[in-house]
């Protein structure tokens, strides 16, 4: 079953971010605030609106993700590409940082 998280791009540098359970915008999806029911989704949407107003992020969207064990897996390919980086350049984007760290 899919749940929802809030994603955006950071205003100053365009970096893909997700709203964390701690209220911070995170550079990785792990630790994103998960909305499991309609009220929580509304809260996410409200959080998105206020984040736009405070000029921290742009292009804010609520997206569908699946919980796979402890991992969050975006349902749409578009969001998986945002999460990782271009599928044709594994040396770029967040996937590159992750593999460097590993």
């Amino acid at each position: 079953m899919s749940v929802k998280v809030l994603t955006a791009n950071r205003l100053a540098d365009g970096e893909v971010v997700w709203l964390g359970a701690n209220g911070e915008w995170l550079e990785h999806i792990d630790g994103a605030l998960i909305a499991r029911h309609a009220e929580a989704v509304n809260a996410l949407e409200e959080a998105g609106k206020s984040a736009i107003k405070s000029n921290l992020v742009i292009d804010v969207n609520v997206i569908d993700v699946e919980e796979r064990g402890t991992d969050l897996f975006p349902v749409r390919l578009r969001e998986r590409i945002r999460q990782l980086g271009p599928t044709i350049r594994l040396d770029l984007g967040k996937q590159a940082e992750k593999s460097k760290a590993a």
């Binding site: 791009n9 205003l11 100053a12 540098d13 365009g14 970096e15 000029n55 742009i58 271009p86």
Partner: peptide
């Protein structure tokens, strides 16, 4: 002005576009 919050994204968007700046999936 944009970074200072003086312009909203809606107002800044046409201005950045006039200068060739888009937002794509991973970055500008």
């Amino acid at each position: 002005r944009r970074l200072a919050g003086e312009l909203t994204e809606e107002q800044f968007r046409p201005l950045r576009l006039m200068n060739g700046v888009y937002l794509q999936l991973h970055a500008y």
